[in-house]
């Protein structure tokens, strides 16, 4: 996410995505949504880490597969 390494880059990325999504954000709500976007990016980036085949999401809700070996 090199676009959001600084506030200006983040603002540009945010506006690009907003346009792509076809959204018209009310002016009085845009700042709050932008701040939420920054926080969400932090959360999503926190999910990126090395994982094994055992983390494949398939079958996640079938109890009998929960404990399978990778």
């Amino acid at each position: 996410m090199s676009d959001i390494q600084d506030d200006k880059g983040a603002r540009i990325a945010f506006q690009k995505i907003t346009e792509t999504l076809g959204l018209s954000l009310p002016a009085d709500r845009e700042q709050a949504i932008f701040e939420g976007y920054l926080g969400l990016r932090d959360m999503a980036d926190g999910l990126r880490r090395p994982r094994t085949a055992a983390s494949e999401p398939a079958g996640i809700f079938v109890p009998s597969t929960i404990g399978r070996e990778d």
């Binding site: 999504l21 949504i33 404990g67």
Partner: peptide, 27 residues
């Protein structure tokens, strides 16, 4: 509105990373 709209700013990869993490947390 301000909360739900944020989901649009996530990428497909973000969601898949979360699903992979979910699997590990269930384990």
């Amino acid at each position: 509105m301000e909360r739900i709209v944020l989901g649009g700013y996530l990428t497909a990869a973000d969601l898949m990373q979360a699903q992979r993490q979910r699997r590990e947390l269930c384990e």
